[in-house]
Structures are given as C-alpha cells and as structure tokens.
Amino acid sequence: MENDKHYDICEENIFSSGHQACPGCGQALAFRYVLNTLGPDTIAVVPPSCAAIISGPQPYSSMRIPVYQTTLESSAASASGIKRALKSKGKDHIQAIAIAGDGGTYDIGFQALSSAAERGEDIIYFCMDNEGYMNTGTQKSSSTPHYAYTTSTPGGKTTMKKNLVEIMAAHQIPYVATATVGYLDDLVNKIKKAKEIKGTRLINILTPCLDGWGLTDSSAVGISRLAVTSGIFPLYEVENGTRYTLNYGADGTPVSEYLKVQRRYRHLQEEQINEIQAEVDLQYSILKRKIACFA
C-alpha cells in the first residue's frame, strides 16, 4: 500500500461541519466521503438513525443537498419516489440516494429495499452498518455479529450476522459492495463506480460505533482496518450478482486482534473466539471460491 494517498473527491464540502455526530464517529467520516464524492446533484432520504441525527436539527442541515427524513422502514421506497419524480421532470442526472442504518436496512427496511432492488429502481443505497441499533442505545439488529453484547442480547447474540451483500447480490442488481472508513480510497472508488452505473446499487459501509462497540474516540479507522485484515469484513464488490472482486481482504490477522479491543466482546471465552475464527474462516473461503468461480 502506498504510504500517503490523495483522494479524488469534491473539494467543496457537501458535508458540513458542526454536525451532531459523536466525536470520532465512523459514520460521520463515511458521510463526508459519500457526500463529497457524489457531489451536489444528489437528493437523499434518511430514516430515523444516527444518520438522521447527523443530518442536523431543524432548521439546519449538515448535508448541503436536499434531504428528506422518512420513516425507518421506507428508505428504499422513498428514494424511489424521488428518483421517479426527477425522471418525470427530465432531471434524471440527479442521483437519488438513501443513507440508512443497519436496523433500517437489514431489519425493518429490508422489505422495501428488496422490492426497490427487484424493480431496478435507479437509486444508490448506502447502509451505514454499525451492527446494531446504536441510536437507541445499542440493541441488536440482524447485522449484529455472533456473540456481540448489546442491551437486548446481554449474554451475547446467539446467531450470526445476516449476510446483506449476498442477499442483495441474489437480486442480481448491477452493483453491491462492501466498504469501510478504514480504506477511504476504496470507499471513494466504489462510490464513483456506483455513480456511473444505472439501476439499484448498494454499498454496505462498516461504520464503527465507538460507544456501541466500546472503543476510544480515535479508533474508528483502526478498528475498521482490523475488521478487514482479520477477514471479518472483507471489502469486495459483486456486479450483476455474479462478478465478484476482492479489493482488500484478510492478511492472516487473527480475529482475536479485532475482538479484544472492543467492549462488546469483552465477555468472550477462548472457545467462543475460536468459534468466531472458524466461522470467519469458512465465510472467507466461500467468498474466495465465489471470486474464483466467476473469475
């Protein structure tokens, strides 16, 4: 990897300072790159979430594009409405996007998302995946990983994280990708790529929640990188449901490196860590086989 990078993004800040995200918030950083890469010809919908808080209190907005705050389960449908209206007005060049949390995507918003994808709605859907209902104070969502503590799974979640990317890839939409704030170059590239494609596009961005995961204020980027290098959250793309590309993946870092710094995993016993390691290894090998299969 290059030592020092420069990112090809919109220099005027579409994302404004003074927003209400917690200090060091991974999602706020993702906002910056999503918005500044997309540029001003964009309209967003945001459901109730941390994203809605970051958007700003009335009458101020942190997003220098038009935004509508919709209901928790409606992001994809709401974005569809905007895009169709724009299309009917001959303003098809304007992107309609949704920026939702994992609860609003994996759980309650999934039905609307699935339908929008099936309809091929020309929207970009950004899931700010912080692996739980963090804005309500850390409850589990279907994105919460195995054994993670949340206030609704105080003994640790007993089931695995839902694989959103694979489900969306199964819709055979033109573009599905994972990204994270640990790799801004990759994030920016994916947003740019998505912007050039027509149809339903989804980028699932791992955005660590410092409070919900139990991390220090300066660790959002570092923990994101550990998620990638440990193989827990590989960065990859699926085009048209078949073409897999791995962008950044595991480098042999054991999952324990990733788990041990997070308070939500503090209760783990060695055998549970081993179990997670085995799960991650399996998933990663499946991913690699898919990449090879469609290469």
């Binding site: 309209i43 919908v45 509508y68 919709t70 209901t71 389960e73 409606s74 994809a76 449908a77 709401s78 974005a79 569809s80 409405g81 905007i82 169709r84 209206a85 724009l86 299309k87 009917s88 007005k89 039905q111 609307a112 699935s114 339908s115 929008a116 099936e118 309809r119």
Partner: peptide, 28 residues
C-alpha cells in the same frame, strides 16, 4: 397517461414513494 408507475411490495412503500415524489414537486 404519461406517468412513472411504481409497483412496490406494499401499500406502505407506495405511500412512502408518494410522499417523496410529491415533495420533489410533482403530482402523485
């Protein structure tokens, strides 16, 4: 009739799309 028809998975989504389309300045 020249209109964008949306055939969503539920009335809930239908109304969600109505709201944003309307707020985007068109008749729904």
């Amino acid at each position: 009739l020249e209109a964008e028809t949306i055939t969503p998975e539920s009335e809930h989504s239908a109304m969600a799309a109505c709201i944003t389309a309307s707020l985007t300045g068109v008749r729904v």
